[in-house]
Amino acid sequence: MQFTNKVYIKNFNVFAGPFLDLAVGNNNAGLDLGFAGGLGYDLSKNLGFEVRIKKGFISMLDHENSSFLFANSNTVFQIGAYYTFRFKK
C-alpha cells in the first residue's frame, strides 16, 4: 500500500510518500514501512514513463546484530511505463 502525492510541472511530475508492504516467504515474513519517491514524464495525454526508489525503514532479516532502522532494510529501484484512462463524463 502506497500513499503518493504527485505534483505536475508541465509534462514532468514529481512524487513522494510513505508505503507499507507485506513481506512473505519461507524465512522472511513481516511488514516493511518506508518512503518512496520518483520522477515521471508524460509523453502524451495517456502514456508516460517513471523512475522511483523505495527505501524501507525496518530490518527485514532477523539477526542479533541488526538494528530497527536501516540495517538489512529493503531498497528498490523501479522503472516503469503507465497508461492513463481519461474518460469524459
Rank of each mutant, 00 (worst) to 15 (best):
M1Y: 06
Q2P: 10
Q2N: 08
T4E: 00
T4A: 07
T4Y: 04
N5F: 07
K6N: 06
Y8N: 10
Y8L: 05
Y8R: 12
I9D: 02
K10V: 15
K10S: 14
K10N: 13
K10E: 10
N11I: 03
F12P: 06
N13F: 12
N13I: 06
V14F: 15
V14E: 03
V14C: 07
F15A: 05
F15S: 01
G17R: 13
G17T: 13
P18E: 00
P18D: 03
F19M: 07
D21M: 08
A23Y: 11
G25R: 01
G25S: 08
N26L: 05
N26W: 05
N26D: 07
N27E: 06
N28F: 08
A29D: 02
L31Q: 02
L31N: 07
D32W: 08
D32Y: 06
G34Q: 00
F35G: 07
A36D: 09
A36F: 08
G37K: 10
G38S: 02
G38C: 01
G38R: 00
L39P: 12
G40D: 03
G40M: 05
Y41C: 03
Y41V: 06
D42L: 06
L43P: 03
N46G: 04
L47K: 13
L47G: 06
G48L: 13
F49P: 04
E50Q: 11
V51D: 00
R52E: 05
I53Q: 12
K54D: 15
K54F: 13
K54V: 15
K55T: 10
G56W: 02
G56H: 01
F57I: 07
I58D: 12
I58E: 13
S59P: 05
L61N: 07
L61E: 03
D62F: 12
D62N: 15
D62G: 06
H63Q: 09
H63D: 11
H63G: 14
E64F: 14
E64T: 15
E64S: 10
E64K: 13
N65H: 04
N65P: 06
N65F: 09
S66F: 09
S67K: 08
S67I: 08
F68I: 04
F68D: 04
L69C: 09
F70I: 14
N72A: 04
S73G: 13
N74R: 12
T75R: 14
V76R: 00
V76H: 00
V76M: 01
F77E: 02
I79Q: 05
G80V: 12
A81D: 08
Y82R: 01
Y82W: 02
T84L: 11
F85V: 14
R86M: 11
R86I: 05
F87L: 10
F87V: 12
K88C: 09
K89H: 11
K89Y: 11
